[in-house]
């Protein structure tokens, strides 16, 4: 267990070297968007006072809805997509073929797989919570920059315009939704890891198989999502049934991905 924790600490350290700069870059862009909105507000206030036109209300939606803000938010998820590939291929393609040393470690090879996966889990939580903290800081600055009579206070969980993808997918407001959305992403990550190991094990054939496996994960999930709109379905399927089936599917795919990866790491993977 200690060896696994040391490996996890090692992987996390490597990931934080990418994650922290990405979060800082995202924060800087978010503050630029904030100050841009405050500048616009001041210009609008001046214009309204001069022309005696009633002022509109301002809220955090004016900050988060500005063009730069969603771009800033998406930097971190994009890093996760990039790093999910990079974390494996650097071991083979980087200097010194590090995978050789990793596979020679006197621990179960699945520790490599799980240390990388859990690194993403911890990194994901850190990124999620840092963004939540940034919302709080931006909220306080914006609240103090706007005159109270023109400021609409929103709960910190509603600072993104409702029904927008960012709000719906990244910041769920129930623990069920949180587990579901982040569980879906984690299972997708494991499927991708499995696909990478297929490619590392069987070269071109493995790459094709891996791509099919990865795409099949999404196809399966969205097939379940669409069950209640399939015309020929003989049963009544309630939305709660779909939700439970999706949850079971996510868990099943995590187990299948781990099993395939275990077999590949143990028997097939090539250095």
């Amino acid at each position: 267990m200690i060896k696994f924790i040391r490996l996890l600490e090692f992987e996390l350290g490597r990931f934080l070297r990418f994650l922290i700069p990405a979060i800082v870059l995202s924060a800087v862009i978010q503050f630029i968007a904030l100050f841009d909105t405050i500048t616009n507000y001041n210009a609008y206030l001046k214009e309204s006072l001069e022309s005696n036109v009633p002022m509109q209300q301002f809220s955090m939606h004016d900050v988060t809805g500005s063009g730069l803000f969603p771009v800033a938010i998406l930097i971190v998820p994009l890093l996760f997509v990039f790093y999910s590939l990079f974390t494996w291929y650097r071991e083979w393609l980087g200097k010194n073929t590090f995978i050789y040393r990793l596979l020679m470690l006197p621990i179960n090879r699945m520790s490599i797989f799980f240390s990388k996966a859990i690194t993403f889990l911890i990194g994901g939580l850190l990124a999620f919570l840092t963004q939540f903290g940034l919302y709080a800081i931006i909220f306080v600055i914006f609240e103090n920059a706007i005159q109270p009579e023109y400021f609409t206070a929103l709960n910190i969980h509603n600072v993104q315009p409702p029904y927008e993808m960012i709000q719906l997918t990244l910041f769920p407001t129930t623990s069920f939704e949180f587990l579901h959305i982040y569980g879906f992403a984690f299972a997708a990550l494991l499927a991708l890891f499995t696909a990478i190991l297929m490619e590392r094990s069987f070269s071109v054939k493995g790459a094709i198989g891996g791509i099919i496996y990865f795409i099949a994960y999404f196809v399966g999930y969205f097939y379940i999502s669409a069950l209640n709109s399939i015309d020929s379905m003989p049963w009544i399927i309630k939305p709660s049934h779909i939700f439970l089936m999706q949850g079971a599917y996510i868990l099943l795919m995590m187990v299948i991905s781990a099993l395939i990866s275990h077999l590949l790491l143990k028997n097939k993977v090539r250095v």
Binding site: I5, R6, L8, E9, L12, G13, L16, I122, G123, L125, L126, F128, L129, F132, G133, S175, F178
Partner: peptide, 19 residues
Amino acid sequence: YLKLSISLILSVIGLAVYF
């Protein structure tokens, strides 16, 4: 295990505050 400990503590506290 400094990085791991800090990350886990922040994650747990942050998640609790979030919900």
